[in-house]
Amino acid sequence: MRQRVSKHVQPLTTGEQTTAINILTKRLMMEEITQGVALRELRVRVLGLRQDAYSALVGVSRKTLSEIENDKGNYTPEIINKVFKPFGLKVGLVPTSSQVLSAILLN
Score class of each variant (00 low, 15 high):
1 M>Y: 05
4 R>I: 12
4 R>T: 15
6 S>V: 02
8 H>I: 06
8 H>Y: 11
10 Q>H: 10
11 P>F: 03
11 P>E: 04
11 P>K: 01
11 P>I: 00
13 T>R: 00
14 T>Q: 15
14 T>M: 13
14 T>D: 15
17 Q>G: 03
17 Q>P: 13
18 T>C: 01
19 T>V: 14
19 T>N: 10
19 T>E: 14
19 T>K: 12
20 A>N: 00
21 I>Q: 10
22 N>A: 14
23 I>M: 07
23 I>N: 06
24 L>I: 11
25 T>G: 09
25 T>E: 15
26 K>Y: 11
26 K>R: 14
26 K>H: 12
27 R>D: 15
28 L>K: 00
30 M>I: 13
31 E>G: 00
32 E>Y: 05
32 E>M: 02
36 G>L: 08
38 A>V: 00
39 L>S: 04
39 L>A: 07
40 R>G: 01
42 L>H: 05
42 L>R: 06
43 R>Y: 01
43 R>W: 10
43 R>I: 10
45 R>F: 05
46 V>K: 01
46 V>I: 05
48 G>N: 08
49 L>C: 06
50 R>H: 11
50 R>M: 14
51 Q>N: 02
52 D>P: 03
53 A>V: 09
54 Y>G: 10
55 S>Y: 01
55 S>W: 02
56 A>M: 14
56 A>K: 15
56 A>Q: 15
56 A>R: 14
56 A>H: 14
57 L>F: 10
57 L>G: 05
59 G>P: 13
59 G>I: 03
60 V>D: 09
61 S>M: 07
62 R>P: 09
63 K>R: 10
63 K>L: 08
64 T>G: 00
64 T>F: 00
65 L>C: 11
65 L>G: 11
66 S>T: 15
68 I>C: 06
69 E>Y: 08
71 D>Q: 02
71 D>M: 06
72 K>T: 14
73 G>F: 11
74 N>D: 12
76 T>C: 03
77 P>N: 15
77 P>H: 14
78 E>Y: 06
79 I>L: 09
79 I>T: 15
79 I>N: 08
79 I>C: 09
79 I>G: 05
84 F>K: 09
86 P>L: 07
87 F>S: 05
89 L>V: 06
90 K>A: 09
91 V>E: 12
92 G>S: 11
93 L>W: 11
94 V>Y: 06
94 V>S: 04
95 P>D: 13
96 T>H: 02
97 S>G: 04
98 S>I: 13
98 S>D: 14
99 Q>Y: 07
99 Q>N: 11
99 Q>E: 15
101 L>H: 01
101 L>E: 06
105 L>F: 14
107 N>T: 10
